[in-house]
Nucleic acid binder design. Structure first.
Length: 123
DNA sequence: GCACTGACGCGGG
DNA sequence: TCCCGCGCCAGTG
């Protein structure tokens, strides 16, 4: 690796605004590795990003919340999101957020700002 | 090095 | 919009 993907991912995840949901692929993209969505999931699952990561704000590209195993109770992620005002609806595939409504929609400026942060911190 | 895994994503139909 | 198949790639044993 030429840089530490997980450190970048931690910075991006901590920047997800309260009351918004981001996708694995979106985080990977902002870290400069658009094809590493799976590694974002891996890092969250295994705690590779350190403390104070709002993992409940990360969902897949369809807005589906992660499966039961990841959080202590099956509806913890849902409850955390709802406590922030995110609407979560039940589907056959599991709990789902409306990314149109509550997704974190990045601006180009935001993406460029992350790149500057990484460069400044040499990660 | 090899095979398999998985909190994933996309393009085509 | 919804499925499905295939591609992806760091970790793990």
């Amino acid at each position: 690796m030429s840089y530490d993907f997980y450190k970048r991912a931690a910075i991006v995840c901590r920047a997800i605004p309260y009351g918004k949901a981001a996708t694995y692929g979106q985080i990977a993209m902002l870290c400069g590795r658009p094809r590493n969505a799976r590694q974002v999931g891996y890092a969250l699952n295994r705690g590779r990003m350190g403390e104070n990561i709002p993992a409940h704000r990360v969902v897949n590209s369809r807005g589906i919340l992660s499966g039961a195993a990841a959080f202590e109770t099956r509806d913890l992620q849902k409850r955390l999101l709802e406590s922030e005002g995110v609407k979560v609806e039940y589907t056959e595939d599991g709990w789902r957020v409306d990314l149109k409504r509550d997704g974190w929609h990045n601006t180009m400026e935001e993406a460029l700002r992350f790149r500057e942060i990484f460069e400044a911190q040499n990660i």
